[in-house]
Structures are given as structure tokens and as C-alpha cells.
Design a binder for these strands. Structure first.
Lengths: 111, 111
DNA sequence: ATTGTATTTTACCAAGTACTTAATTAACCG
DNA sequence: CGGTTAATTAAGTACTTGGTAAAATACAAT
């Protein structure tokens, strides 16, 4: 079963290594070996991380001689933002609750 | 190794069932059985989903007689928004690129 | 053609996920 | 008390993840 786009994106972002790779790519396109340097991890491990980022559409890969430069593709991140924006009112309402206010009564038990 | 807050949150959101539960809770506090109804899944399965949402701080659970009402806690979602906001310029810049512009030269290979 | 560098693929393993059914706890109600 | 409802825990299974080492591929340089 292929996971939907949102799931693939969130899943890729759930990994600190993946997020660190994206952060690095935010400062420009670079090669796989270069990306691997900060991590205490073998190349194949990085390669797999890149594959999940690519499947999620968060990066794309080119070809330049023997290098496969990676570049950030932020499109799916816009979807994440849209998704999370929907819930904005909940944390804003929480902030407002601190300045004292009616909290509403729980009614879930009646039907 | 305990996963950091961001990882726990993204990981919880990576599951469609988890997101659906949050969506349901957006329209108000409710019981576990009520939450389980839309899903073709047993109660223990839902219970586990709730546990990961709770560990991520995305919901909290109360006690009311034999019910354990769940409520949405949107705090961590604000952090997700803050994280993703950092990348906003990348998709906006992409949108701008459509109206023709210099694309910059790749220089990653020089050091 | 051989050697070197960059990267991916393959095969493997340990640990974690995502469910299941069955048993258990907790609280209500007669 | 004993029965019912709500929910969790326990135990088991199938599948996925995140890493490894070693082999394979792709291209460049000599």
C-alpha cells in the first residue's frame, strides 16, 4: 500500500538525520559525500536517507560527472504548513485562555 | 535513545490514523470508543495510537467515570509550524522563478 | 586497460511498528 | 455481590526501519 503524500512527508521529517540533511541543503546544492560528512554513519545509510527524502519529494538529484548533487525541493513543506495552519486556532485559543475566560462545558457523553 | 520532541511529533503525524484522530478532536473532546468508530480497527489498536499521540504531547486524557476523554493539545503543532516556516522562502522563491529570473550558478564542487 | 573516486545495490540483522486475540483492570448499575 | 461497559495490558505475528559490510556500477584520469 503506497502511503499518501502527507504521510511520506511527515515520515521523512520524523528523522533527525533527514531534517539535518534538509537544513544543510537549505544553504545550497551539494554532493552525497559532502552531505554525509557531519554524520557518524556509512555512505549507504545516507543514501537510504536521501532515498526517503526523494520519495517524499523533498529533494531532487542531478548528475554531474561522478557526483549526484542533491537539491532541496520545498514543495511538500508548503503542504505541511497548510495542514498545520488549520490547527493554529487551538494553540492561539490556549494562549488566550491564560487571560481568564469561559472554558465551555463538555457534552461528548450526550449522544 | 529517547527521540526528541520534533521527531516524536512528526512521527505521530506521519500516520493517517493519528491525523484523522486529531481532526476528530478538533471538533471537541470525546471518548476512546467514539474515536474508534470511524476505523476498521480494534480498540487496542486505537489505544496504541492514542498513546503515541499522548507521548508526542498532541493530546491529553482525562478520567470521567469509566470513560477516558481525549482532548487536542496543539502546542507541539506550533513548533512544527515554526520549523516549516524557516523553509518558506524556498517554495516562494520557486513560485517567483516561474516569472523568469537568474538562477545562480552551482559552486558546490569548488571546496 | 587499469586505477581511483563517488555512489548505489545487495544481503543481512536487530529493533521497532502495526496490527491481532485474549485476558485484565476499572468503574458503573441492578 | 455479579453483570455490563470502557479501556488498557499482554502475548504473539507479520512487516518495516535503520543500520552494517561487501560487491557492483558509473564515470574520470592516467
Amino acid at each position: 500500500m503506497p502511503p499518501d503524500q502527507s504521510s511520506a512527508t511527515f515520515s521523512a521529517l520524523a528523522d533527525p538525520t533527514g531534517r539535518a540533511i534538509l537544513a544543510r541543503l537549505a544553504s545550497g546544492e551539494t554532493s552525497v559525500t559532502e552531505l554525509a560528512k557531519p554524520f557518524d554513519m556509512t555512505m549507504p545509510a545516507i543514501s537510504k536517507h536521501l532515498k526517503v527524502l526523494e520519495r517524499a519529494g523533498l529533494i531532487s538529484r542531478g548528475r554531474e560527472a561522478q557526483w549526484r548533487p542533491c537539491r532541496l525541493e520545498a514543495g511538500p513543506l508548503k503542504d505541511v504548513l497548510d495542514w498545520v495552519e488549520y490547527y493554529r486556532r487551538f494553540w492561539e485559543q490556549l494562549a488566550r485562555r491564560i487571560s481568564g475566560e469561559s472554558c465551555g462545558v463538555t457534552t461528548w457523553r450526550n449522544q
